[in-house]
Design a protein around this nucleic acid. Structure first.
Lengths: 249, 249
DNA sequence: AAGTGGTCTAGACCACCAT
DNA sequence: TGGTGGTCTAGACCACTTC
């Protein structure tokens, strides 16, 4: 049971490699109609890892809503839901938020420093200036969301020089992370509804005053500091926020 | 390492008992200003369990956004956010959805069977009838949400006879579970915005046509069957949907 | 009765942080 | 350098499902 007898350490942990492999197989539908995965014992043998490692991998997939585990019976891939015209995001963890697959991005206003005491305070900055940028996203030829980004002025300058954002399917926070001393640890978001202001209505293709979805986020790093605030205005006819809630046991 | 030397089996697993204990301590602010929890080694000793059990308990708290773990440094309680007048729900798992703390419930229409082919189809029922009920919730003397519940007609009859819902802070699905052969495994929800219909506007205290938050849910059981569908109309001035997104690693 | 996932122990090495 | 959380192995018994 000494560790010298175990597999060599890798850059990415074994349970994550296994989870990623299974994720691909599930996407490809390799587990047939019933979606039945190999048993934990089989996965142990096939991949040469301990049961604990297998279970950690399955925990990840379960957290993301990809599988369902039934005691005494087996592990099954959840059926993937079909689209209904709108762009539906299914978010289980922050890792799924760092890319927007199949969308394109348009920079309306790149990062500039402006005076905004209220937002500076919300970012817990010791002064009244913030960096601001405004970005719009398209899906299938239609704009569906416009997002305001607020960061500390120093970070805004760095991002402006690096011409961030650069990737059409990336996110500002995802690209900004390389310039941070601490990594992004998480985010807190509030979802609510509001009447579309005139400018936002034009940008996302709805009437002024029409109901839109507002999602506000605050990203914080591992040191506990606030890194970025965003406010996204979604056209609800083109976007819906989908998520899975699961029982713990 | 034989199990005969281990602690006796309990009705609820040890890691859950530990998690619940820690949850209470966090709520009470027993870990001081910094919110630093005991180390995993200390928790092992204090509660007489293995490190694996300690880590499973901490995993639960992390999933619910209550703690943050920093490698090499320690485990810390996340600061609880203050209120801003509105009722803010923070949902990490289904277990947190089976009660609505601090709210009261009003039955507008108790369960009755009605003809509704579209909803019967969405519940995957083989006929055109569904059971329907309508419930309103209050917070601090103000109504903030009205929810329509749809279930299979047979379940509706059972619930009507049992006079469900009965608890002011309970949920229909939570109380219905005792009558089901399979347990609730999870739910899928879509969040979007819409203009308030006249009737719903009256019920939640806003103007007709005002933007409101619509949350649609489908609950499914461990057998994979659909159990209940709900549509909730929230007054966004009195309610906001808050959640935490966390990095996996 | 056999097989599956759920829980738990004991012990190990590692990466990272604080000192 | 010592302590913290992150990863991993080996092995065990249990609850539940299926046959």
């Amino acid at each position: 049971m000494t560790d010298s007898a175990s597999a060599p350490r890798r850059a990415t942990p074994a349970y994550r490699l296994l989870a990623d492999r299974l994720r691909v197989q599930i996407d490809r539908g390799e587990f047939g109609q019933a979606g039945r995965l190999p048993t934990e014992a089989e996965l142990q043998r096939e991949h040469g890892v301990s049961r604990h490692t297998v279970r950690e991998a399955l925990n990840q997939l379960e957290t993301d809503g990809l599988i369902r585990r039934v005691q005494g019976s087996g592990t099954f891939a959840n059926p993937s839901q079909g689209r209904s015209g709108r762009y539906q995001r299914r978010i289980g963890s922050l890792d799924e938020i760092v890319v927007w697959p199949d969308t394109t991005m348009e920079v309306l206003d790149s990062f500039e420093v402006e005076v905004n005491p209220a937002l500076a305070a919300r970012l817990e900055l010791p002064y009244i200036e913030v960096g601001h940028a405004r970005i719009r996203r398209w899906y299938e030829g239609e704009p569906f969301v416009v997002t305001d980004h607020w960061v500390a002025p120093s970070l805004a300058k760095t991002l402006a020089e690096a011409r961030v954002p650069t990737r059409a399917d990336g996110t500002v926070i995802g690209e900004a992370e390389q310039f941070l001393s601490s990594k992004i640890a998480g985010a807190r978001q509030d979802i609510t509804a509001m009447a579309a202001p005139r400018r936002e209505a034009e940008l996302i293709g709805c009437e002024p005053g029409a109901p839109i979805l507002l999602i506000e986020r605050v990203y914080y790093d591992t040191a506990g500091g606030l890194v970025e605030m965003t406010a996204s205005h979604f056209n609800p006819r083109r976007y819906s926020y989908r998520m899975d809630l699961r029982r713990r046991t």
